[in-house]
Amino acid sequence: MSDLTSVYLFSAQKSNFSSAVFSNYLQAKDWIENNYLSGVLIEYPLDQSCYDWAINTGHFKEKTPIDRAPVFIAKFVSAYQRNWHFEHGELLVHTDV
């Protein structure tokens, strides 16, 4: 059984989909740097949605009916998820809320 609680997804600039998933930050960072990639690396909770994670951690509270709408939940990503922005393999911005 694994103790893994999150994964790291990399999405290139102007891409609609992620191109890589890593089990730890250092592997992801090395891959991004070695390939001189530009994009964002985001930590995602494992085995739960970003929406549920944000509610369970107190980072989001439902205020209106739209907050429970399928279209809202399906597109939800929390600003409280850790993320790193890279340009040509170099770390530009790190958000660790």
Rank of each mutant, 00 (worst) to 15 (best):
G58C: 06
D67V: 07
V21A: 10
L4V: 11
L4K: 13
S38M: 01
L92S: 05
S19Y: 08
W84T: 03
G39R: 08
Y36C: 05
A54K: 06
N83P: 01
G39L: 05
N24I: 06
F22M: 10
R68L: 11
N16D: 15
E90M: 09
H59D: 12
K14M: 07
N83Y: 13
P45H: 00
S19A: 08
T5P: 00
F72G: 00
D96Q: 13
N35P: 04
I55E: 05
F60E: 10
R82D: 11
F60Y: 15
V40Y: 04
V71P: 01
T64G: 02
N24D: 15
Q81A: 13
V40A: 09
G58S: 01
Y8I: 04
E43K: 15
N24C: 13
E62H: 04
V7T: 14
D30F: 03
N83I: 00
F60W: 06
L37H: 00
T5E: 15
A12N: 09
P65N: 05
I32P: 07
D67G: 01
H85R: 13
P70N: 13
F22S: 04
N83G: 01
S38A: 04
T57A: 09
Y8C: 03
L37W: 02
C50Q: 13
V97R: 09
N34D: 13
T57F: 08
M1R: 08
P65G: 07
L26P: 00
L37F: 03
L92N: 08
E62I: 15
G58F: 01
N35T: 06
P65R: 02
G89M: 11
N24V: 03
V71R: 09
R82F: 07
R68C: 03
H85G: 00
V7Q: 09
F17K: 13
